[in-house]
Design a protein around this nucleic acid. Structure first.
Lengths: 206, 206
DNA sequence: CGAATATCCGGAACAACATTCCGTTTGTCA
DNA sequence: TGACAAACGGAATGTTGTTCCGGATATTCG
């Protein structure tokens, strides 16, 4: 990272065309505060608290991040990018089947690590509406490629949709109350196992 | 159902030792109103709205159902019981493997049918804290029996925990925004497929 | 360097809810 | 019917989301 000033490291990496210095400074402070507050008190923490911790008025907070989800989006951007990148890396180092399985397993690290990210993704709460669109929009194409490759090579069944699998994976990757990531990992692995070309789905009618 | 009075059908089936008549009447009205409001506006609907629809003051609502989750618990009790009963029925009519698969599939009908039940179960919101405990408490033992039977008979792997599987199933059973129950069904089936005694988990390290 | 001005800031103000509390009303029982 | 416990209702209080605008301040330009 090559930033001009020497002080604390910034969170928002992007350069700015013509933003006032204080504005940028405040945006960074807000992101830092939000991360801290979210981690300690969950993503539903009061906006006032975040603004206060950043030493800023709520007006400033709302101007920069009109929706709570904008704050979350900014915070997870890095990790989301990493998850996207991982697809290429894994595809290069492993066979199609393993690459897919490993990428799915990695979802746990992406979701389970950030407190409340999982619940927020699936809450249906309008305040977080933009989150699923954002995350799924980034990850679906990537997963689709892995999935197609694996299906084409014949190691997994070919009747599974990328959207659906991603949704399922993200749900399972969300740790239970108590934060047991290991359990989440096992469940995602179980799901992935179901992908491997099997005999057939038990077609029994109730 | 054998209730004394003839009027509208009651929701709370239980008999009462010595509750004032108006109290019971109000409790029923509240449950009916809550069901209607939840269905139309989601489980986050204002308490005032429910009280109003029941023709009752908020005080009465809070006295009878101190927590929002108490209202939900009362509403889903019937369906939860049905899900519990289904275990015995299925176990009697099908082999261990199919009984398990079918019961898991039935979770979708239990969860996906009641608007917002799924999200509420996994939200982590303290207001719903009691819900997971209640639902899991009822269903876990039942699933454990099905799971043990299937594992013993050798049709599925034996290293899966009932708690974990139930959690996973409930998550997948929750329909995506748009209420596609069919998709939920497919994902649960996929998970169930992963249970069938397979070659082995892909033990590749990243 | 010293205005001029486009930006940005702060926090009071308003609105929507959850939840509590207590004076009043109403069943129930003798 | 009268007395009393049980239940009711809704005003009152506290919390949080969100908006709005007078005031502060970087930046730019002469």
């Amino acid at each position: 990272m090559k930033t001009r000033g020497g002080g604390k490291k910034e969170i928002s990496s992007e350069a700015a065309p013509s933003v006032r210095a204080d504005a940028r400074r405040n945006a960074d402070a807000l992101l830092r505060a939000a991360l801290a507050v979210f981690t300690e008190s969950g993503v539903d923490a009061p906006m006032r608290t975040i603004a206060a911790k950043a030493g800023v008025g709520v007006g400033t907070l709302y101007r920069r991040f009109p929706q709570r989800s904008d704050l979350i989006k900014a915070i997870i951007r890095r990790d989301l990018d990493a998850q996207v990148q991982a697809a290429s890396t894994l595809a290069a180092k492993h066979g199609p089947g393993d690459a897919l399985a490993l990428w799915m397993g990695r979802l746990v690290d992406f979701v389970a690590t950030k407190r409340d990210l999982g619940p927020a993704l699936h809450s249906g709460d309008p305040a977080y509406q933009a989150l699923p669109d954002f995350v799924l929009g980034q990850l679906t194409p990537v997963l689709r490629r892995l999935l197609d490759a694996a299906a084409t090579s014949g190691v997994i069944r070919d009747d599974v949709d990328a959207d659906e699998l991603l949704n399922a994976g993200l749900r399972l990757a969300t740790p239970v109350n108590g934060g047991d990531a290991a359990q989440a990992r096992r469940m995602v692995a179980l799901l992935t196992d179901g992908l491997r070309r099997s005999l057939s789905v038990p077609a029994v009618k109730e």
